[in-house]
Each structure stands twice: as structure tokens, then as C-alpha cells.
């Protein structure tokens, strides 16, 4: 009984903590990781440093928004399925309410000329931010012939032949598995 009560308290605490994280972090999932670390590792000690590192690695290597992956992972780890629901709902609710309100406000003012000019500026800044994000990823990528071939093939297929990005992802994932199957006799590195 005592155990159950403790778990219930944890679920509530998870919800409130992730609600706060969702409401006050700008810039998406990566910006949330230090906050999750402070709350969950340093203060509440619900997860260890090692688990935190695993959490980041798993969040990055599974599909979907990193923030959602991280929240679900921490919630499930601390308090099972209920914990996962609480943390994920918590991190989403502030965004949801803010954007719901903002979309009505913005669509009311969208036709104003000054707002349209502001959006010219916003689009240009989005281009620059995405370009630099791309540059950062490119620098992190291992520079091998096969990686360059995959990169260029992706760009040509999606940009010039309108191949569906989902298809490109599935095919390369499948190729990765085939690659392992063929080379598994020769010790695949890493």
C-alpha cells in the first residue's frame, strides 16, 4: 500500500516536472536534456548518470521528436507505463495550449502587410538556422566514400526525383541490415 502511494506521488511529480520543462525550454529536445539532467539526476536522483547517457543515446537513435522520446523514457524508467504517460503528456501540454492560442492570433493578423514582411525575415532566418544545423551534422558525419554516396543519392532522389523521404529512410535502414548480414563473417566494426 505504501509502495503504491509512493508510486502515485512519483507519477504526479513526473507530470508536473515535465510540464515545467515543456513550458520553459525553447529550441526543442536538445535544449531539454540539461534540464532533465538537473531535475532527474541531480535533484530527485531518480535516474543515474549512466542511465541519463543511455537515455540520450536511445532518444537520438529512435524515430520521433527527441523531447518526446526523452520524456517517455524517463517516465517509463521511473514509474512504468503510467509514468511514461504522465511525463509525455506533461511535456506536450504547454506547447499544445500555447500554439492553439497563437495560431488563432496569428491567423487573425496574417493578412496585415507588416506581419507578412516580418515573415519574410523569419523565413530567411529559418534558412540560415537550418543551414548551420546541416553544417554541424555534416561535420559530425564520418567521412567515408559510402557516406558521401548515400548523402548525395538522398539529395538527388528527394530533391530532383521527388522520391518519398520515408522510402529513402526505409531503404537505407534495410541496406544497413543487409550490409551486416553479408559482412558478419568478417567482424563488423563497432
Amino acid at each position: 500500500m505504501d509502495e503504491q502511494l509512493k508510486k502515485k506521488g512519483k507519477v504526479q511529480d513526473l507530470f508536473l516536472t515535465f510540464l515545467r520543462i515543456g513550458a520553459f525550454t525553447f529550441g526543442g529536445g536538445y535544449a531539454m536534456i540539461p534540464l532533465i539532467h538537473r531535475e532527474m539526476v541531480d535533484q530527485k536522483k531518480w535516474i543515474t548518470e549512466d542511465e541519463m547517457m543511455d537515455m540520450v543515446a536511445i532518444s537520438e537513435s529512435t524515430p520521433g521528436p527527441i523531447a518526446i522520446n526523452a520524456a517517455t523514457f524517463v517516465g517509463a524508467h521511473v514509474a512504468g507505463k503510467k509514468g511514461a504517460v504522465a511525463a509525455t503528456a506533461g511535456v506536450c501540454i504547454p506547447s499544445f495550449l500555447i500554439m492553439l492560442g497563437l495560431s488563432y492570433v496569428l491567423s487573425a493578423f496574417e493578412s496585415l502587410r507588416i506581419v507578412q514582411y516580418a515573415f519574410i525575415g523569419i523565413r530567411a532566418s529559418v534558412l540560415v538556422l537550418i543551414f548551420f544545423a546541416w553544417l554541424g551534422m555534416l561535420q559530425q558525419m564520418k567521412r567515408s566514400v559510402i557516406n558521401w554516396i548515400l548523402l548525395i543519392t538522398t539529395v538527388v532522389a528527394v530533391e530532383f526525383f521527388s522520391v518519398n523521404p520515408v522510402a529513402v529512410i526505409l531503404i537505407s535502414f534495410f541496406l544497413g541490415i543487409v550490409h551486416t548480414l553479408i559482412w558478419s563473417g568478417k567482424k563488423v566494426k563497432k
Partner: peptide, 22 residues
């Protein structure tokens, strides 16, 4: 190993997709 290698194979594709967005 299979998932690890498949994810490695995915990295340049994701860089490519972000290039497309740019």
C-alpha cells in the same frame, strides 16, 4: 549489431535530408 549498423547507415541519409530542406 544489426540495429547499430543500420542506424550508422541512416546518418548520412539524415544529413542528406536536412540538405534537401535547406
Amino acid at each position: 549489431q544489426y540495429i547499430g549498423n543500420a542506424l550508422d547507415m541512416l546518418k548520412p541519409v539524415i544529413v542528406g535530408l536536412l540538405g534537401c530542406a535547406t
